[in-house]
Amino acid sequence: MNLVYAFAIAAQMGCGIYLLLSRHVVRVVLGILLLSAATNLLIFVSGGLINTAPPVISAGSETLGDQAANPLPQALILTAIVIGFALVAFAAALVLKTYRALGSVFTDHHNAAEAMGSPFVEESSNG
């Protein structure tokens, strides 16, 4: 089972990296999305995949049952999902704004920061 997960995560990460290397900024954001999802899976697998019962302490008992899954990776993933959600939403907004301001979604055309204060062009640096 672990091996299947390992290959699935590897495949997903490969797709994420491939998209990340694209010139198209929307693809880049999608790549980040895939990568962070794959990372969440990685944490999930590293928490162990043996147990199946939900990690809920039943009424009257003080500890988790034998078959309970490890709750910590779930908490970590939940946190990571929330953070990833916020950052990807922000990145999407940033992409939209960049597109509106620079008129292109291709990173080849994104050179406004580079042109600012460029050592080779004297006139473009007004700060």
Partner: peptide, 17 residues
């Protein structure tokens, strides 16, 4: 500004990675 959005894009992608 245009330069800031462009800079932020680079910053965001690398730092998210």
């Amino acid at each position: 500004t245009r330069a800031q959005l462009d800079g932020a894009m680079k910053y965001a992608v690398l730092n998210l990675f």
